[in-house]
Design a protein around this nucleic acid. Structure first.
Lengths: 216, 216
DNA sequence: TAGATTGTTAATCGATTAACAATC
DNA sequence: TAGATTGTTAATCGATTAACAATC
């Protein structure tokens, strides 16, 4: 009865499958086998089949997978078959970048409000959305049904702000602040740590650099 | 003689160790045991010791780890003991956000140039750096010693641009375009796929939502 | 010295890959 | 039907955790 827990590794791969299937769909590809897809994605066919079968049998023996159907099913798994109301907290460069990124809206993530603490930014408009003062956020969240809060604030203010958000009913936080938020387990936090991403890049550059030196 | 290959999982955790140690350093904490750190970071002490011992013995029995020393050593491992010249390609919102993020410079990632194709943006200044036309990029890269190119361009132009960059000598690409770049193995690509991050968030929100309905 | 905590080996756990029977 | 390819089980591989001797 109880479903097997899906591993984090599988979930991490799902959006990539979704992207590749979307690309195939745009190219009007109708069907694809796990083998073909595995070659494009540089993974094993076995892994693709194993991953997909966590959620059900989407393919057909002797045929492969119908691209449109599989794309749609993975979309459903990812929760993309509904809309999400998103607010952005922190209207700095990154917040503005997120607000301006139309691709999110296309996927159902609708940015409905932006908040900031800086009087110079409050009142300015980003894509027809007026930046509101932070003090109005509590009321706004309680009056509207917000699904996700994107946190693009300094790391010093992030933890307290996050705690407030949770107390006002927010269940999903997209955290860009370079800090870990420790919140109740019914709250979902997805971190984007750009500085850490950059460090992984410099790590790999260093390793290659050192290797080259040794080889002379 | 030949060093054991460091696993990707370990590398992914290194920047997080570095961040926690930096925070401890700021709080003037002198020493920390793997147990204390494990409680803060919500990982096992065993994992911390195992991870660190991939690179050498940084601790002392009966004492633990010296925070400043360990921070510095991990910094070296991550390649943060040198400077990197970074160019940004694509001066849209995201490119501007990166250019304006001073934390990177503090860590040694110096943004030296920004390029764009849009005549309206070319010539404008971001943090004292004038946005240059894309046509000047080849010469600029060949004349200067660029370590990293941050790619914040649409996915349609990313693969060709990346190939150009590589042919001009770029060895590190920080890719924000929602596409995979297939490049020679001596080129390091670090991807930041924001849309995929957002989908992981919606996946987890959906799972919890469905669970709630069932328990309803 | 006694206590604490590392470094490291061994045991466990989980994820990936291989293989193949099922079936379209 | 024959060929192809899935879904799934079994085998392998790798990563995490536990345990403890080494040692500060």
């Amino acid at each position: 009865m109880s479903k097997k827990e899906i591993s984090k590794a599988v979930i991490n791969r799902l959006p990539r499958y979704y992207r590749y299937l979307g690309d195939l769909l745009e190219k009007d590809v109708v069907r694809i086998s796990s083998k073909e897809l595995s070659e494009k994605m540089k993974v094993t066919a076995s892994q693709i089949r194993q991953d997909l079968n966590n959620f059900g049998g989407f393919g057909q023996q002797g045929y492969g997978y119908n691209v449109e159907y599989l794309h749609s099913e993975i979309g459903k798994i990812l929760g993309l078959d509904r809309k999400y109301k998103v607010i952005i907290i922190g209207a700095g460069n990154l917040g503005q970048a997120l607000a301006n990124y139309t691709d999110f809206a296309r996927r159902g993530f609708q940015i409905v409000a932006i908040f900031d603490i800086d009087p110079k930014i409050i009142g300015t408009k980003i894509r027809d959305i007026e930046v509101q003062p932070l003090e109005q956020m509590e009321e706004y969240i309680k009056d509207n049904d917000i699904d996700i809060a994107a946190l693009t604030v300094p790391k010093t203010s992030a933890p307290l702000l996050a705690a407030d958000l949770v107390s006002w009913g927010i269940k999903g936080i997209w955290n860009f602040a370079p800090t870990d938020l420790h919140l109740p387990s019914d709250v979902t936090v997805e971190n984007v740590h750009l500085a850490e991403s950059l460090m992984k890049l410099s790590y790999r550059l260093s390793v290659k650099e050192n290797l080259k030196k040794k080889e002379g």
